[in-house]
Design a protein around this nucleic acid. Structure first.
Length: 401
DNA sequence: AGTGATGATTCCGA
DNA sequence: TCGGAATCATCACT
């Protein structure tokens, strides 16, 4: 049997693990022998005749040995060897045999077309990075969208614009790191792919390498690199999540309203002291002027009413101050810069300034409360409790009672 | 660190 | 759903 017949004196098994005994290619290698014998008329000496059979076998053995050891040699050596092999008279024959072996083993195409489906995790990561503004187009959209999404649920004073910019800058930092790393990976992937393709093309001169095989190899490389990319995307997502949670936590922190905002609110409050319940429109207007949300306006008025009621004496000075201010503004003209609604619907009108108490600080709270618009029972004039669903203060005409 | 001011939250009643 | 009341958490000042 062929298995017991070494091709050369040394035999393949003596080489560096060529170990082709039992290999389906052995039959084909035998045909090399025959092929070379058929070609014996080709003028090359030493191939014809049975006595030359041994020589031929040794020849083939040598070639195989050289191919097997070529990777162990230095670049120059290998280059020279390659050239020698390419020019070897046995090369075409050997090449065709290798082709035959390959065809028989069916190695090349067996699992070539396993179309791996898009990794759902990778899709998720991609979507998230896109939504967070890390991946995709730079132009503000992403980061701004993320910020607006984060702020949409609650109020946000203008002071928090600092946090916005902080958030944005951190996000863009993450973004730039992500893109740098991604670029690096892509570059490395391209370089490596090119290298492997060149190698395969080079090898295709000595062994059959189909384009599909190259494609497959490239796909494998891409798969490997994409797994690295997935890791990068994952850690980027984590970083964004951490940043975001920190940002949202910071949002919860209380920030005092700006001086100007407090002034606007106080002016409204003291000029409507008889009924300090701004309508929805008034709240909206105030919110706009103060750069806060409507719910913050509501909170402010809620707090103010209760605190004022609890300690009127303490607020007397403040009340006088604002009364003076607004009175002065009313006298000077309709377009007082401090009049909260001078441009609006008129809800903030100071008509008559009847709410204002410009007198001496009160001796006791109860009297003052009455004077300031509160009834003795602790309720504001004309209301025991706000009508449910209806705006407690829908117009400005009740200021004068 | 202590303290008052202040914005936000929660619970409750109407 | 709104506002009152109590309370919490943080800021800002001393």
């Amino acid at each position: 049997m062929l298995q017991q017949q070494p091709l050369t004196g040394n035999g393949p098994s003596n080489g560096r693990g060529l170990g082709m005994s039992g290999h389906p290619g052995m039959h084909a290698l035998n045909s090399v022998h025959q092929a070379s014998q058929h070609r014996s008329d080709g003028g090359d000496s030493g191939l014809e005749g049975t006595e030359n059979g041994h020589e031929t076998r040794r020849d083939i053995g040598d070639i195989l040995q050289q191919i097997m050891t070529i990777t162990d040699q230095s670049l120059d050596e290998a280059q020279a060897k390659k050239h020698a092999l390419n020019c070897h008279r046995m090369k075409p024959a050997l090449f065709s045999v290798l082709c035959e072996i390959k065809e028989k083993t069916g190695l090349s195409m067996r699992n070539a077309q396993e179309d791996e489906p898009q990794d759902p995790q990778l899709v998720r990561l991609d979507n998230m990075l896109l939504a967070e503004g890390v991946a995709g187009p730079e132009k503000g959209g992403g980061a701004a969208a993320a910020v607006s999404a984060a702020t949409s649920s609650g109020g946000m004073s203008p002071d928090s614009s600092l946090e916005h910019s902080d958030y944005k800058s951190k996000l863009s930092q993450i973004r730039s790191i992500y893109h740098t790393e991604l670029e690096k990976y892509e570059q490395a992937c391209t370089e490596f792919t090119t290298h492997v393709m060149n190698l395969l093309r080079e090898q295709s001169r000595t062994r059959p390498v189909t384009p599909r095989e190259i494609e497959r190899m490239v796909a494998i490389i891409h798969r490997k690199f994409s797994s690295i990319q997935t890791q990068l995307k994952q850690s980027t997502c984590e970083a964004v999540m951490i940043l975001r949670s920190r940002f949202l936590d910071a949002r919860r922190k209380r920030r005092n309203f700006s001086k100007q905002a407090t002034e606007v609110l106080n002016e409204y409050f003291y000029s409507h002291l008889s009924n300090p319940y701004p309508s929805e429109e008034a709240k909206e207007e105030l919110a706009k002027q103060c750069g806060i949300t409507i719910s913050q306006v509501s909170n402010w008025f809620g707090n103010k009413r209760i605190r004022y009621k609890k300690n009127i004496g303490k607020f007397q000075e403040e009340a006088n101050l604002y009364a003076m201010k607004t009175a002065l503004g009313a006298r000077q003209g309709d377009d007082s810069p401090h009049t909260p609604n001078s441009t609006g619907s008129g809800s903030f009108s100071l008509s008559g300034s009847a709410d204002l108490f410009l007198g001496v600080p009160p001796v006791n709270g109860e009297q003052s409360a009455y004077q300031m618009g509160m009834q003795a029972n602790g309720n504001w004039h004309g209301r025991s409790s706000p009508p449910p669903g209806a705006s407690p203060h829908s117009d400005h005409s009740d200021n004068s009672d």
